[in-house]
């Protein structure tokens, strides 16, 4: 075995882990570091369920060798969830029933976080475009777009009337 100890910064904490050559970040995050929100999906970069942020950019962690993430700031869903509740995007997903089986949800939320960070007031078309690489087989996407729209409103201090 040619495993190697690497230092990764995940959700602000620096951890050491043994990784194999070309082992995807997804597998390290989920199977070794216990960040269970980072789902194992298609492993082809096609479904988006393993989306995490690397230095604030959404990437599919199944296609990033873990070693290539050394020296970056990795953020998973666990990292945006407050200790005592939910982040605004998570609240909005719950309120708008933007999930059924929930498998795509962490990836969707990470993409939504990255979008709202860059564009606090996106149009529906911009939201659809941003999440186009995240596949959801349950909701038909409308509730997800509603939720992200509502999250942007609540984060900008406008009330969400639940519409």
């Amino acid at each position: 075995m040619s495993g190697k100890i690497v230092e990764l910064t995940v959700n602000g904490r620096t951890v050491e882990e043994i990784v194999d050559p070309m082992e995807p970040l997804q597998s390290v995050l989920r199977n070794k570091l216990g960040n269970m929100a980072t789902k194992t999906g298609c492993k082809q970069g096609g479904c988006g369920s393993c989306t995490v942020l690397v230095d604030g950019e959404p990437i599919v962690s199944c296609l990033l060798p873990a070693e290539a993430a050394v020296g970056t700031e990795i953020t998973t869903l666990e990292g945006i969830t407050p200790d005592d509740g939910l982040a605004p995007v998570q609240e909005a997903f719950r309120d708008h029933f933007a999930m059924q089986c929930g498998y795509c949800t962490p990836g969707m939320i990470m993409t939504a976080e990255a979008l709202l960070e860059r564009n606090p007031d996106p149009s529906r078309a911009e939201i659809e475009d941003a999440i186009s690489g995240n596949v959801c087989r349950c909701t038909g996407y409308d509730p997800i777009v509603d939720a992200i729209e509502a999250a942007s409103e609540s984060m900008n201090g406008q009330g969400d009337d639940g519409a």
Partner: peptide
């Protein structure tokens, strides 16, 4: 360089390169 071509094949077990340079 980005990994979007090589990684899917490696994850799938279709290719096992002896060495990889990123």
């Amino acid at each position: 360089s980005g990994g979007t071509i090589a990684m899917p094949a490696i994850n799938e077990g279709k290719t096992f390169p002896a060495r990889v340079m990123d």
